[in-house]
């Protein structure tokens, strides 16, 4: 019996002293955290995509709580959550959130396998960044899509897939949250975050090359040749299209999606979606 008594007493004593010490430490060194941060973080999507510019959803939650203290959260937004999420959080904080138009990532290249056929084969690693550093790409166009799928790998939401038919990445409008990861992943800056448009209707120039027409056409049949037909076709009251360095650009806010530019483009570089995305039946 004696053998047991002393260790039990000793351990019990150590436990008691530690408990007292711990409770004192817990009281005096307590880190006070704003309880709102946890609640806000719960309201956010939790994808940690970084689209807001903060490191993960909790980063934005902290910024929102801080912003609420300063009575200004207008600069903060959650691209994947959209207005719904922001309204919910703003209501919780007793403020109003700035309303933003829903956006989507759009690929500005239409150098498909048939329009811009490969001139040689790159046998290095399957990475756009590496190929872009070494060569102008298999099609020979130094501006267009390299087609190794850095964007698809970077997309947190699985919204980008490389199409085996066109060889280009395709953005799934249902999954895209316009977090902007693809914009930074693309070494040629081909993705642009544009407004989704009413009923998912949007018009954009699907090309980024700034070469003169003849040269551009050598590599790609759907290159923008800078002819300016779209600029002329755009109704005066909108004047949404500008031409710079042999390349047209459509302002997504000014554009009213009349579609007049689409038919006049000789190389079909003006691309448009006029159909809202179809939801799959089981969704």
């Amino acid at each position: 019996m004696n053998v047991l008594v002393s260790p039990v007493i000793l351990l019990g004593a150590i436990g008691a002293v530690s408990a007292v010490l711990l409770s004192i430490t817990a009281r005096f060194f307590k880190v006070h955290e704003d309880p709102r941060i946890d609640s806000i973080a719960e309201m956010l999507p939790g994808a940690n995509c970084g689209g807001c510019g903060y490191p993960g959803c909790r980063g934005l939650a902290e910024a929102l709580a801080k912003g609420a203290d300063k009575k200004d959260i207008s600069a903060l937004k959650c691209p994947p959550g959209g207005n719904d999420t922001m309204n919910k959080i703003a209501a919780y904080l007793g403020m109003t959130a700035a309303q933003t138009e829903p956006t989507i990532a759009v690929l500005r290249c239409y150098g498909t396998l048939s329009a811009a056929p490969s001139k040689y084969r790159f046998d290095g690693p399957k990475s756009c960044a590496v190929e872009n550093m070494l060569f102008s790409g298999e099609s020979g166009c130094g501006y267009g899509c390299v087609g190794n799928g850095d964007c698809a790998a970077a997309c947190t939401f699985g919204a980008i897939t490389l199409s085996p038919v066109t060889g280009l990445p395709e953005v799934d409008p249902l999954k895209c949250t316009s977090c902007g990861k693809c914009v930074t992943a693309c070494p040629r800056n081909l993705f642009e975050i544009r407004t989704r448009g009413k009923k998912d209707r949007r018009v954009w120039i699907s090309c980024r090359n700034t070469e003169k027409g003849g040269f551009a056409r050598k590599n790609c049949a759907s290159a923008c040749i800078g002819c300016g037909a779209c600029v002329k076709a755009c109704p005066e009251q909108f004047s949404a299209i500008t031409m710079q360095n042999n390349l047209a650009y459509i302002d997504s806010i000014k554009c009213k999606r009349c579609g007049k530019c689409i038919s006049v483009c000789p190389t079909h570089a003006v691309k448009a979606t006029f159909e809202p995305p179809k939801k799959e039946e089981n969704l």
């Binding site: 290095g124 690693p125 990475s127 960044a129 590496v130 550093m133 070494l134």
Partner: peptide, 8 residues
């Protein structure tokens, strides 16, 4: 492809 990525 060590060098390719190291160069990048």
């Amino acid at each position: 492809s060590l060098l390719d990525y190291i160069r990048l």
